[in-house]
């Protein structure tokens, strides 16, 4: 009986695996953590020439990837980040700089300067707008892959923030427009303060204890919770079955 139970379970797992293999790997927000970001040479609008690691050594970095001709997510990303930093909890004494870097090779220092002015950030000391001549190596070191569309003359890209600590290690990546709480966790992480994170559910992650619903913002118990209860349920069932079988045999 147990053999059949185990076989059914394995078939159940394998049937999910077939689907999982066909899906692209999810959760790239969790990639590159604890890896060193590429030490790209930066040209900052203030006129300074520093490397990524030198800048991080001054203060840990929140790196935002944008381009100046962006008609999509770039402006909301900067505006949201600016606002969230004002309200982020428990970051009062934490050090950080925000590095806004263009991933479009056509962008110049002048373009980035105009962008800083547009957001009224040109005089904010901890905001650095910059370009680099090594953008492809920099973005590949954080697994950021914008795709150019000739028809729209736009990049299709994610809204990505990368946290880099003063040693140049990637400590956290945030995908999408994030609230002040998430930004607070990012600032903590680049200051080497514990920031709780949990792997996001992906297509290949089948038995989560909880399922997060992004529409309602609520967690509901997942299949994983059943697995935690399963050993106790099976044990008591086996106990009853053994007794029934023993009783019927002795009768």
């Amino acid at each position: 009986m147990h053999k059949y139970g185990l076989t059914s379970f394995l078939i159940f797992v394998c049937s999910f695996l077939v689907d999982a293999v066909a899906q692209p790997a999810a959760g790239w927000q969790e990639t590159n953590i604890n890896e060193v970001i590429y030490n790209a040479p930066l040209q900052i609008i203030s006129g300074d020439h520093v490397s990524m690691h030198q800048l991080a050594a001054q203060n840990p970095l929140v790196v935002a990837f944008v381009f100046t001709r962006c008609s999509g997510i770039c402006a909301p990303l900067i505006i949201q980040l600016k606002e969230s930093l004002q309200f982020a909890p428990n970051i009062g004494n934490k050090k950080y700089n925000v590095l806004v870097i263009s991933f479009d090779p056509r962008d110049s220092v002048k373009d980035m300067e105009n962008m800083a002015t547009r957001f009224n950030l040109q005089h904010e000391g901890n905001w650095k707008f910059a370009v680099t001549d090594s953008i492809s190596r920099l973005i590949s070191s954080v697994n950021f892959n914008p795709v150019w569309y000739e028809q729209t003359l736009q990049f299709d890209h994610d809204a990505l923030l990368v946290g880099v600590n003063s040693q140049g290690f990637v400590t956290k990546k945030l995908l999408g427009l994030r609230n002040s709480k998430d930004i607070g966790l990012l600032i903590n992480s680049i200051n080497n303060v514990f920031s709780p994170t949990y792997r996001l559910p992906g297509q290949s992650n089948l038995f989560s204890c909880y399922n997060y619903n992004p529409k309602t913002g609520k967690n509901t118990p997942g299949l994983g919770m059943l697995f935690i209860a399963l050993p106790a349920i099976l044990s008591f069932s086996i106990l009853i079955i053994i007794r029934l079988v023993s009783k019927s045999k002795s009768a």
Binding site: L6, L17, V21, R199, N205, F207, Y210, G222, G224, F227
Partner: peptide, 23 residues
């Protein structure tokens, strides 16, 4: 079974860390 599934699927199947710690 869950650990073997992850190991032999070479990452195609990934476990939930909380579930595995509970088990």
């Amino acid at each position: 079974v869950l650990l073997f599934a992850e190991y032999y699927s070479h990452g195609a199947f990934v476990n939930d860390a909380l579930l595995i710690k509970n088990l």
